[in-house]
Simulated scan of single mutants.
Amino acid sequence: MSFTIFLALIIIVCFLLILTIMVQNPKSGGLSSSFGGGGQMGGVKNTTDFLEKTTWVLGGTLIALILFSTLSFNNGTGGSKLVDENAAPAIVKDAPAKQATTPATKPADSAK
């Protein structure tokens, strides 16, 4: 149950992170170019700072959610559940063994 909640939160954070990165433009474009002058409320510099900080916060949140979901998936044991120790070992059938072929020998003449 809690893993499902973490998964939903991870998807939401990923979507927000994608939006935040797509809005940014490293060459003074993007959302910050739509504001004309520096005298406007928010300004260009503040917009880029806000988007950069938002990207870092969302990235850190994503990493934390992934780590916590891993603990939730393992039920807090910290061990891997990829291999079940209680399962019966698999039976592997080998290819049929080839019989050694030896040259046919003549039966010993016992009548001599």
Results as ranks from 00 to 15, higher is better:
residue 13 V to T: 01
residue 10 I to Y: 02
residue 61 T to L: 14
residue 69 S to H: 05
residue 5 I to M: 02
residue 19 L to I: 07
residue 1 M to Q: 11
residue 19 L to P: 05
residue 45 K to Q: 08
residue 100 A to P: 09
residue 77 T to S: 14
residue 37 G to P: 00
residue 51 L to I: 06
residue 9 L to K: 05
residue 87 A to L: 11
residue 53 K to C: 05
residue 85 E to L: 11
residue 92 V to R: 01
residue 18 I to R: 01
residue 97 A to I: 02
residue 11 I to E: 04
residue 39 G to N: 15
residue 86 N to D: 09
residue 36 G to S: 10
residue 27 K to P: 06
residue 95 A to N: 10
residue 110 S to M: 08
residue 20 T to I: 08
residue 37 G to E: 08
residue 7 L to C: 04
residue 111 A to D: 13
residue 54 T to H: 01
residue 105 T to Y: 04
residue 71 L to P: 12
residue 76 G to F: 11
residue 10 I to W: 03
residue 60 G to P: 11
residue 50 F to W: 07
residue 56 W to E: 03
residue 8 A to M: 00
residue 31 L to F: 12
residue 67 L to M: 07
residue 1 M to N: 04
residue 103 P to Q: 08
residue 102 T to A: 07
residue 36 G to L: 06
residue 65 L to R: 08
residue 40 Q to Y: 13
residue 6 F to Q: 05
residue 55 T to V: 15
residue 61 T to E: 00
residue 22 M to S: 14
residue 17 L to W: 10
residue 104 A to W: 03
residue 98 K to M: 06
residue 105 T to R: 12
residue 76 G to H: 09
residue 94 D to I: 06
residue 67 L to C: 12
residue 77 T to P: 01
residue 6 F to G: 11
residue 41 M to I: 03
residue 100 A to S: 15
residue 15 F to G: 00
residue 66 I to H: 02
residue 105 T to P: 15
residue 78 G to Q: 09
residue 17 L to E: 03
residue 14 C to I: 15
residue 2 S to P: 10
residue 28 S to I: 06
residue 43 G to P: 08
residue 22 M to G: 11
residue 25 N to V: 03
residue 108 A to P: 11
residue 105 T to M: 09
residue 43 G to D: 12
residue 112 K to W: 12
residue 51 L to Q: 01
residue 30 G to V: 02
residue 38 G to C: 00
residue 35 F to V: 15
residue 40 Q to S: 09
residue 70 T to S: 06
residue 87 A to H: 02
residue 101 T to L: 09
residue 107 P to L: 12
residue 101 T to C: 15
residue 91 I to F: 03
residue 62 L to P: 00
residue 52 E to M: 10
residue 69 S to K: 09
residue 103 P to V: 04
residue 47 T to G: 01
residue 30 G to R: 10
residue 5 I to W: 13
residue 43 G to N: 14
residue 69 S to M: 14
residue 100 A to G: 04
residue 102 T to P: 10
residue 95 A to F: 04
residue 109 D to L: 15
residue 72 S to Q: 07
residue 88 A to P: 13
residue 76 G to A: 04
residue 36 G to P: 05
residue 7 L to E: 12
residue 74 N to S: 14
residue 20 T to D: 04
residue 101 T to F: 14
residue 95 A to K: 12
residue 33 S to F: 01
residue 6 F to P: 10
residue 47 T to P: 03
residue 61 T to Q: 11
residue 32 S to M: 11
residue 29 G to I: 03
residue 12 I to C: 15
residue 58 L to P: 11
residue 58 L to F: 08
residue 5 I to N: 09
residue 79 G to W: 05
residue 67 L to K: 00
residue 43 G to S: 01
residue 32 S to N: 00
residue 20 T to R: 04
residue 74 N to R: 10
residue 45 K to Y: 09
residue 99 Q to P: 08
residue 69 S to Q: 13
residue 83 V to I: 08
residue 71 L to R: 02
residue 97 A to W: 12
residue 59 G to H: 14
residue 89 P to N: 15
residue 86 N to E: 00
residue 77 T to F: 14
residue 47 T to L: 06
residue 26 P to A: 08
residue 15 F to W: 05
residue 17 L to A: 00
residue 46 N to H: 06
residue 102 T to N: 12
residue 76 G to M: 06
residue 69 S to E: 10
residue 95 A to Q: 07
residue 70 T to G: 15
residue 100 A to L: 12
residue 108 A to E: 04
residue 23 V to P: 04
residue 108 A to L: 03
residue 38 G to R: 02
residue 1 M to Y: 15
residue 4 T to G: 02
residue 25 N to D: 14
residue 83 V to S: 15
residue 1 M to I: 02
